[in-house]
Design a protein around this nucleic acid. Structure first.
Length: 363
DNA sequence: TAGGCCATCTGGTCCT
DNA sequence: AGGACCAGATGGCCTA
């Protein structure tokens, strides 16, 4: 554990601090280093008087002093006068020698470093999660809680697809994804998924929207952008999308041959592989699709996937898509969405992928 | 300026 | 005993 600590470059200042402590450097040096290494934090918080006082006189007493200053161990406020006053209950409190204070500080600092590392690990895992849920953006990161909520909804949505073996319509899909999300996140997700959030909200408020669907997922045809579709390869090409900046969907372009890049929608790049390619059929498979692969379009139509190798896909590369097949529900979408839908729809008609998927499901 | 989000510190508890 | 995990506290940053 400590080894990991020392191997972590982000903790280098702490490591240096530790080395200083290892040779019994004085408190002044410690405090100096402390202040330098703490980003935006109260430099003295680690050695704060209040909390230190508390710990020094409470929990740390038991494990702190195990050796030679036994005489001091017996010293507790008033404890030394056995006959005169009733003995205090509870653990005996030990006098804090300088050595014990030093060790206590050392232990606390090490614990802090571990905790920092732990939280960094947690955050990086969360970052990875951000990249595999829909609407990944480096610049506009989802908050932690929103990431978890969206991930939960996403898993649920995919499970529903697996369970039903049916294509969901985009509206239902977005509604599912956005369940419990904040308004800004809902807008973001809806925008990422090519659905004007206003329309989406209208759908949400109007149960009639459900008439386009059957159950939680109806049969519609919308491609939607999933995580990391904002990668540069998705911005290649020249087609300008009729949707606004929020509505621009690299998935659409890359999947349907356009690859147009709305300059307003220059989402940050996705860098590098993160997790195994995920297919809608639930299998994790490494996909290295050649640019001219005949299965290319098919894969876009019914698989949620991305290549771990940037640029390994024609017109796209690292993005991962899930594109549903076609059917009605146009009425639920406002005019600004009609065109892209139309294009997608037509495109989808050329791709029998979903039938194959259904065949797979019904085997 | 309030509120949301975040990083960090801290002490307690549990586990190995 | 030491580490992992957790939750509360605190303060900074950002945005509406």
């Amino acid at each position: 554990m400590l080894t990991r600590l020392f191997n972590d470059p982000s903790l280098l200042p702490d490591v240096q601090k530790y080395s200083g402590w290892a040779d019994d450097s004085d408190d002044e040096k410690i405090k100096e280093d402390d202040g330098d290494t703490r980003d935006n934090m109260d430099a003295s918080s680690e050695l704060r008087g209040g909390s230190r006082t508390h710990s020094e006189h409470a929990g740390e007493d038991e494990d702190d002093e195990d050796e030679d200053d036994g005489a001091e161990d017996d010293e507790c406020d008033g404890d030394d006068t056995e006959g005169e006053r009733p003995k205090k209950r509870g653990p005996k409190k030990r006098k804090m020698t300088q050595a014990r204070i030093e060790r206590s500080k050392m232990r606390r600092i090490k614990a802090n470093a571990r905790e920092r590392t732990r939280m960094h690990d947690l955050n990086s895992a969360l970052d990875n999660l951000r990249k595999v849920v829909p609407c990944y953006s480096k610049t506009q990161k989802l908050s932690k809680i929103e990431t978890l909520r969206l991930a939960k909804n996403y898993i649920w949505a995919l499970s529903e697809i697996l369970r039903s073996g049916k294509r969901p319509d985009l509206v239902s899909y977005v509604q599912t994804l956005c369940k419990g999300l904040s308004q800004p996140t809902t807008n973001l997700v809806a925008g990422c998924l090519q659905l004007n959030s206003r329309n989406f909200l209208t759908e949400q408020q109007c149960p009639e929207g459900a008439r386009y669907g059957s159950g939680s997922f109806a049969m519609h045809s919308y491609p939607y952008q999933c995580a990391r579709l904002s990668s540069p390869h998705c911005r290649q090409g020249s087609n300008s999308h009729p949707l606004g900046s929020h509505g621009y969907c690299p998935a659409y372009d890359s999947a349907y041959g356009g690859g147009g890049g709305s300059p307003e929608y220059n989402s940050p790049e996705y860098e590098g592989p993160l997790s195994p390619p995920l297919c809608v059929n639930g299998n994790f498979a490494l996909k290295h699709q050649g640019a001219a692969s005949p299965d290319h379009d098919k894969a876009y139509h019914y698989s949620m996937h991305y290549s771990g190798l940037p640029g390994s896909r024609a017109g796209g590369g690292g993005a991962h898509n899930l594109v549903f097949g076609s059917s009605g529900a146009r009425g639920a979408i406002h005019s600004e969405n009609v065109l892209p839908y139309h294009d997608m729809h037509l495109h989808h008609e050329r791709a029998p992928a979903y039938d194959e998927l259904n065949a797979f499901f019904h085997n």
